[in-house]
């Protein structure tokens, strides 16, 4: 979104007035930074606390003047395996969600089959179903199927965060594709699968990346299914590791906060590196 605003101000013809607007805008910038500082204080505090010396963070200083990385050492030693589990589950959920969502999004945006409305309705309704209801039923089913404490079980369950979202965001993009592209491919003799695979998917690259990034975050951040569908240490996402840290009396805040920082890294990376794709996804609706 920021990309759009910068380009629009860049193409503004009257450069002098733009410069004047910039000067009058500075108080707003100051105010904006103040708002942001308040909003992001907890994030700062997380980083600050993670850099305090181990164990003795009862009275943390407001700035990490002498940064101490031992909290991260402890965090990696105790939660390293859990971070790996989270990574595998999140990546698996991305693959599964996109494989399910992309064909559905194509059908929902370009076919007029009778079932499309039912599927869309089901997606909307799915947003109303509390996670605890899903977890309740999945626990008993997973227990029978032997899917408790498995990576596969978590990937399947975690994708329930990503699949509806991915369908909606990819559908919004594919809906903006001119149907002439598809008709051209069809007339040239390509089947639906060929058209989908070699025309629609490559053109929809940005929407797929956006959906994939968010699906990753959803699965990475999942807590409810990690909490309910695992019962042993064998498969333990980092969110659950963190919950167990803070569930007991905490004496060593620096390693807890270091774990929180590590668990938050994907979100930060997404925001800083992949901002273009986030903007591409959120502005598709506005573009058409």
């Amino acid at each position: 979104m920021s990309a759009i605003s910068t380009t629009s101000s860049g193409t503004m013809p009257a450069r002098a007035s733009a410069r004047a607007a910039k000067r009058t805008g500075l108080p707003y910038t100051a105010l904006g930074i103040l708002f942001l500082a308040i909003m992001l204080f907890p994030v700062y505090w997380m980083v600050n606390a993670s850099l305090q010396p181990n164990g003795t963070t009862i009275q943390a200083t407001w700035f990490p003047i002498h940064p101490d990385f031992s909290g991260y050492g402890t965090a990696l030693a105790q939660q390293g395996q859990n971070l790996g589990t989270s990574l595998i589950v999140a990546l698996g959920s991305v693959v599964l969600s996109l494989a399910i969502a992309a064909p559905a999004a194509y059908a929902l945006s370009h076919f007029t089959v009778r079932g499309t409305n039912i599927v869309l309705f089901a997606i909307l309704i799915s947003q109303m179903i509390p996670g605890i209801v899903v977890a309740n039923a999945l626990y008993t089913a997973y227990n029978d199927l032997g899917l408790l404490n498995t990576i596969g079980g978590l990937i399947l369950a975690d994708s329930s965060h990503g699949v509806p979202f991915a369908i909606l965001i990819i559908r919004a993009f594919m809906g903006s594709l001119p149907s002439s592209i598809i008709e051209a491919g069809r007339v040239d003799g390509a089947g639906h699968v060929r058209v989908f695979w070699s025309i629609v998917l490559p053109v929809s690259r940005n929407a797929l990346i956006t959906a994939g990034l968010f699906t990753f975050l959803f699965a990475w951040s999942d807590f409810l299914f990690a909490l309910t569908l695992t019962t042993t240490d064998a498969v333990r996402p980092v969110t659950l590791g963190l919950y167990q840290y803070i569930g007991s009396y905490v004496t060593d805040w620096s390693s807890v906060m270091a774990t929180a920082v590590l668990a938050s890294l994907p979100a930060v990376v997404l925001l800083l590196v992949a901002q273009k794709f986030v903007a591409a996804g959120t502005s598709t609706g506005a573009v058409k």
Binding site: V43, L217, I246, A260, A267
Partner: peptide, 13 residues
């Protein structure tokens, strides 16, 4: 950022 980081990490801090 507050929206994107895991709820449990926000909860911890």
């Amino acid at each position: 950022l507050p929206w994107l980081i895991p709820l449990i990490a926000s909860g911890a801090v």
